[in-house]
């Protein structure tokens, strides 16, 4: 299989990289990278309110929601969900609707 990174100055018989294919593959690879939804600590929002939001937005059990809430409180942040970028955007939006400090970042 030809490498998409093969330089186009190769001989006439050499496969020529198709820039569209290259772009599509890079886009696909980027889309495959999971994204984390991170909730950050905020001293004003009450802990049981945060727990309730995690239960409602993600459908988590009370135990799981409380674990994330405690991690936010004690460590300053918690990765509350990981997955496809589009869904991560949706969750961050939902968390902002409930006034939590939430960001998304690439999972390493």
């Amino acid at each position: 299989m030809p490498s998409i990174h093969q330089p186009s100055s190769a001989g006439p018989e050499a496969p020529v990289a198709d820039p569209d294919v290259k772009q599509k593959e890079e886009t696909s690879a980027a889309a495959d990278v999971p994204w984390n939804v991170v909730v950050h600590n905020d001293p004003i929002t009450k802990m049981n309110y945060v727990t309730m939001i995690f239960q409602r937005v993600f459908g988590y059990s009370k135990d799981r929601a409380e674990r994330h809430m405690k991690e936010v409180h004690h460590r300053g942040r918690s990765v509350v969900w990981s997955g496809a970028r589009e869904k991560a955007e949706f969750y961050v939006q939902q968390l902002h609707v409930h006034q939590l400090l939430a960001t998304m970042e690439r999972a390493l």
Binding site: V38, Q93, T103
Partner: peptide
């Protein structure tokens, strides 16, 4: 109330602009 949607380590200026234009008005 209208906090950033993306961490500082991410290169997300375009994303932030889209967020401010399309998502924040809904919120």
């Amino acid at each position: 109330l209208y906090s950033d949607p993306i961490g500082p380590a991410e290169d997300g200026d375009d994303f932030k602009e889209d967020w401010q234009e399309f998502v924040q008005p809904e919120i």
